[in-house]
Design a protein around this nucleic acid. Structure first.
Length: 285
DNA sequence: CTGACAACCTGACAGC
DNA sequence: TGCTGTCAGGTTGTCA
């Protein structure tokens, strides 16, 4: 699944290609892709049709288009709120181009183009957020991500330390700081030489700040490289894959030598998912 | 507040 | 070939 750097790469692609386009029609091919839209697929389509897509915005792993009315930008407008889930993609295609398998929603745009939402597993989806152009109320519960101007590192560090939990759990907690998923949590902890099960309360204020700074660095590098992908589930809006585009330091490298010390990378089961770490560099202190 | 777990879905793969 | 179990980058709700 796309984490913050992948979603940001998609957002940039959309900003360059469809921002300002008028939506001529909406075709919901699978209602499950809009199940978070409480008023149903027909209302979803009605709410988007005729609107102009503003420049997409993002917080954490969510992105949204302000749905502009008329020709003016108005941040009090509705928003088309999207999450890619584990397998979501956006593609820009000509209307005549054949639909890819798992295409769930199609937006007809000006000039014979279509914005297509494709999602194999349907963990992602789209909905219209009333008045959500500036910041959809539906995602007000997640914290700012490390790239948000509203991000307050000191406050995030304070809240991290107030948790009675462990570092990896806290990094994955979107209400604390959003955007970090399983890959970048592991990459961050490796770079910061922290064991994922280190108690959050053990960090000093400066160390908590430094941990988020490391997360921001790791993700900034990934954004600069156009996002990470292992397979075809993550692609850019033009269909290009970032396959092998980024070298990960620990994630998925079980048994391979640590790039710092050469020790074999360990895989641990955690929250029904995998954690990868270097048992030598990342010891509980 | 915290953690554990199921649910939401599909597909790829290993093993029998 | 076909079945079963496991795994996959996420989020949300329930329950203890």
């Amino acid at each position: 699944m796309p984490e913050l750097p992948e979603v940001e790469t998609v957002r940039l692609g959309l900003a360059q290609t469809v921002a300002g386009a008028r939506v001529r029609g909406v075709d919901v091919l699978d209602a499950r892709a809009v199940r978070r839209h409480a008023d149903g697929p027909a209302d979803f389509a009605d709410s988007v049709t005729g609107r102009r897509l503003g420049t997409p915005r993002r917080r954490g792993k969510y992105l949204w288009f302000p749905l502009e009315v008329g020709a003016t930008s108005d941040t009090a407008c509705d928003a088309l709120l999207c999450h890619l889930g584990m397998s979501g993609q956006f593609r820009i295609d000509d209307a005549q181009a054949p639909l890819l398998r798992h295409t769930r929603v199609v937006l007809d745009l000006d000039g014979g183009r279509q914005l297509r939402f494709i999602d194999q597993r349907l963990f992602g989806g789209m909905q219209v957020s009333r008045g959500g152009g500036e910041l959809p109320g539906e995602i007000s519960h997640i914290g700012p991500d490390p790239f948000d101007p509203a991000f307050d590192a000191a406050d995030a560090g304070r809240r991290l330390r107030a948790r009675r939990s462990t570092l990896k759990r806290a990094l994955l907690d979107q209400s604390l700081v959003s955007g970090i998923g399983n890959i970048y949590a592991d990459e961050t902890l490796w770079r910061a030489r922290r064991h994922p099960e280190t108690p959050t309360s053990r960090l000093r204020a400066a160390e908590a700040l430094a941990l988020y700074e490391t997360a921001r660095e790791v993700m900034a590098e990934a954004i600069a490289q156009g996002g990470t992908s292992f397979d075809r589930l993550y692609v850019r809006v033009n269909g290009e894959s970032g396959y092998f585009g980024r070298r990960l330091d620990v994630y998925g490298r079980e048994g391979s030598p640590c790039r710092r010390c050469g020790a074999a990378i360990l895989r641990m089961s955690f929250m029904n998912r995998s954690s990868y770490l270097c048992p030598h560099c990342q010891q509980k202190r």
